[in-house]
């Protein structure tokens, strides 16, 4: 693995982009009002792109930084627990799925979003000691799956549209 200045610059850029999306998302009303820290994870849309052009270690680094930074920026430190559980686990899954190159980016997006929500709900269940949070979750999973498909499609289109020179760092 060679760490070029270009790679570092692109990592910083994607990191900023994912943080920005995360902050924007935290300004929108929560999907489940009872669980305001559970989020769809728009900021994770960047992760798939990072895995392809930078590699898994970079993508997971972006995910960790974003998961800690966004809650601090919006003034919700508790949210970091949810973000880390959801964001990092889905980043790892995204990295594995992209590296095995068997399924397409939109479906990778659906699976990652589903794991993201599952981990966030597990944290919610552990923190509130109420397993009932899962019974609230059907719309969240559906919403997340659609959002994951959407972000995966954006990644698919970006990879196709961007010139190969720009992708090889």
């Amino acid at each position: 693995m060679k760490i070029s200045a270009k790679k570092i610059a692109v990592t910083a850029l994607l990191c900023a982009l994912s943080m920005m999306l995360g902050v924007v998302e935290s300004l929108l009303p929560p999907v489940i009002p009872a669980l305001p820290f559970v989020r769809i994870g728009l900021g994770n849309a960047v992760i798939g792109l990072a895995v392809i052009i930078l590699g898994a270690p970079y993508a997971i680094t972006i995910s960790v930084i974003k998961s800690v930074a966004v809650p601090l920026i919006v003034g919700n430190p508790i949210m970091a627990i949810y973000s880390l559980a959801g964001g990092v686990s889905s980043a790892v899954l995204t990295a594995i799925l992209i590296d095995i190159r068997k399924i397409s980016l939109p479906v990778t997006g659906i699976l990652s979003a589903t794991l993201h929500n599952l981990m966030q709900l597990t944290v919610a269940a552990l923190m509130t000691s109420t397993a009932e949070v899962f019974s609230l979750s059907v719309p969240l999973f559906l919403f997340g799956a659609i959002a994951g498909f959407g972000t995966g499609t954006v990644q698919y289109l970006l990879i196709k549209a961007l010139p190969e020179k720009a992708l090889r760092l």
């Binding site: 190159r101 397409s104 990879i159 090889r168």
Partner: peptide, 18 residues
């Protein structure tokens, strides 16, 4: 994983939507 980027870019450049 890092060495995968070259192969990944080639693969996802050509991969079908589904």
């Amino acid at each position: 994983f890092a060495s995968h980027t070259e192969k990944n870019i080639t693969h996802y450049k050509k991969a079908p939507f589904l």
